[in-house]
């Protein structure tokens, strides 16, 4: 009886030691690092995380070569220099603090109106999360973005190098706003081109001065669109601006159904018409021919019969 209890106790002691050593091994390999949910490995792979090092141990025995009075130590409270001292990973907090400091430093510089500030695409929240590799709330990241937007408003001619460098860390790799649309033109034959989309249809239009003839995919308007409404939609841009008998349309349409094709043509003809007569833009906008209709079919979800329809409820 006595011998068996001794052996059990010894085994437990060995196991606890083993567990400890294994844990230490994990930590040294960096296995317990935080992986935020929903962050793809792509983002993680590109991040350059600074190695987090613990603060050096405080030495209370001496200060400036003199021994410290122990009564003083009982009276004062030691406050860490950074509020992130006690957090597991300080990247976000330090980042926020540095941006706040930067703003405080340069807040007296003259600013431009928000409309005149250069358009910048900041890193998306998910992207940032992958970069800092620590749990951050979206609202917190938004604070940084607000500061960045304020800093971005500093007059471009006075923009300090320091701010530029800091903002660079939060900019997306590719700025989509740098992508400028190529200016369209009327070619030597008097033809202007336009591209329009609606739902899943795409329409390409070649517009030239003429008598109001329309060919869509080599067919007449009546052969292409049986519905009168679709025909009127297709040439709505010309009709709304009283240009029906001034231009000939040659179009190629693909994808989608008849309504989508007709409304893709509306947009394409409007764009081609704007190349010929740019002053028609307000009229065309009033007629609803300038903006692409972004609505598309909502995806089907699991558990639903369609996008939103649920199966009939049954008692059991």
């Amino acid at each position: 009886m006595k011998a068996s209890s001794l052996s059990i106790g010894f085994r437990r002691a060995t196991c606890s030691f083993c567990r400890l050593s294994r844990q230490a091994q994990y930590e040294s390999n960096g296995f317990r690092s935080f992986h935020p949910p929903g962050v793809s490995r792509r983002h993680l792979a590109t991040t350059t995380t600074s190695p987090v090092t613990a603060a050096p141990e405080l030495n209370f025995s001496k200060r400036d070569g003199k021994p410290i009075d122990e009564r003083l130590l009982k009276r004062v409270r030691i406050v860490p220099a950074s509020p992130s001292y006690f957090s597991g990973k300080p990247v976000f907090t330090d980042g926020l603090l540095s941006m706040q400091a930067l703003l405080r430093k340069f807040q007296t510089l003259p600013c431009v109106e928000p409309n005149d500030a250069p358009r910048v695409a900041w890193k998306r929240f998910r992207e940032y999360l992958g970069q800092v590799n620590e749990p951050v709330k979206a609202a917190k990241y938004h604070k940084i973005i607000q500061i960045l937007q304020r800093l971005n408003r500093i007059h471009p001619s006075l923009m300090p190098e320091e701010v530029t460098e800091a903002m660079k860390r939060y900019k997306r790799d590719v700025n989509p706003h740098d992508n400028q649309a190529k200016p369209s033109f009327v070619d030597e034959n008097g033809v202007s081109r336009g591209l329009g989309r609606r739902k899943t249809s795409t329409a390409r239009v070649w517009l030239v001065e003429g008598e109001g003839e329309v060919l869509v995919n080599g067919k007449t308007l009546t052969q292409t669109f049986g519905k009168l409404h679709d025909r009127e939609s297709a040439i709505w841009a010309l009709k709304a601006t009283n240009r029906t008998d001034k231009y000939n349309v040659w179009a190629l349409v693909s994808g989608g159904g008849t309504t989508g094709q007709a409304e893709a043509l509306t947009l394409a003809i409007a764009k081609a018409l704007l190349v010929q007569e740019p002053l028609l833009k307000p009229a065309l906008r009033r007629a609803g021919c300038v903006t692409r209709d972004p609505r598309i079919v909502e995806r089907k979800k699991p558990g639903h019969l369609k996008a939103r329809k649920m199966p009939t409820w049954v008692k059991r």
Binding site: G212, V214, T220, L221, R231, E232, I235, T244, D245
Partner: peptide, 10 residues
């Protein structure tokens, strides 16, 4: 006339 002519496929 122009509109009607175009909408009616020529």
């Amino acid at each position: 006339v122009g509109e009607a002519w175009t909408v009616s496929g020529g």
